[in-house]
Nucleic acid binder design. Structure first.
Lengths: 141, 141
DNA sequence: TACACTATTGCAACGATGTTGCAAAATGTT
DNA sequence: AACATTTTGCAACATCGTTGCAATAGTGTA
């Protein structure tokens, strides 16, 4: 785990710092997308709020994580898959937000379908966010 | 216009107040979705920030307007069509955000396509937001 | 129209979220 | 180890949105 994180940082030509390691760790540890507040909870008092903001921004810039729009307008971040690179996200999967546990998931294998645009509208990006009940909450039967 | 607005308020069993009239007017006037800030600009100094927040919330509750999630996490509101009623929005069209003029549009005639969920995930709502260049900005040629 | 009742508004204060500048500390490089 | 460069923490600030409460405006009734 430690090594995987260090490799990822090196691959993104970022220096290895405690905060970056810890924040990446939180993404690998928890397996859903995380809001800023989740990360703040995870890292505890170890790092400043501002550091977390800046680190997340850096990760987005480097293509390590991507942001997910949510209907209730909280910013949520999730790890990108390998196909993402700096400044160039390939994030065309559907995102799922559980109304019950409130977690956000990347449905890596569900591709955003194409839609037919009205005349004059040129689409460059499509975001699709589904909400409902996730498989963990459903299995609690 | 004035009459149309008053009728709409009555139909929603809301009392007719200056702020409600003015805020509804802004939606009819401009023909795109509006952020809180846009409305604040439109009504100027006439009404308090808090009043606008509360009025928008009331309109959402009554099914007069609906919120649109945006990738940059700003809250944006648009008029609902007739099929919406209090507490029950039928808002299954695609939303479009222009990267150029930054306006948000409801593509009333573009229906959100269905997607196949992985086992265990139950979808209850689907939001689809497309960004790109709108027809107005395209026609500037 | 005037009255009383209820709903709405404005103000002030607050909390949460996110940003910036700058000095101190940590990192990478030689 | 020493230097140059990044990164971090702190403080301060801006924005956004919410709440409680008193003042005001709107509605229904006589």
């Amino acid at each position: 785990m430690e090594q995987k994180i260090i490799d990822l940082l090196k691959r993104s030509s970022l220096s290895i710092t405690d905060s970056r390691k810890k924040i990446l760790e939180s993404f690998f540890q928890k397996n859903s997308a995380l809001a800023h507040a989740d990360i703040e909870d995870y890292v505890g008092e170890d790092f400043d709020r501002v550091t977390i903001y800046r680190t997340l921004q850096t990760f987005v810039d480097k293509g390590i994580i991507h942001t997910i729009p949510t209907p209730d307008n909280a910013v949520v971040y999730a790890l990108c898959k390998d196909s993402c690179s700096a400044g160039h996200h390939h994030d065309n999967h559907v995102h799922f937000i559980c109304d019950n546990c409130n977690k956000t998931f990347c449905l890596e294998h569900v591709v955003v379908p194409n839609v037919h645009m009205p005349v004059g509208f040129a689409a460059s990006q499509i975001d699709m966010v589904v909400s409902g009940v996730c498989n963990f909450c459903n299995n609690v039967s």
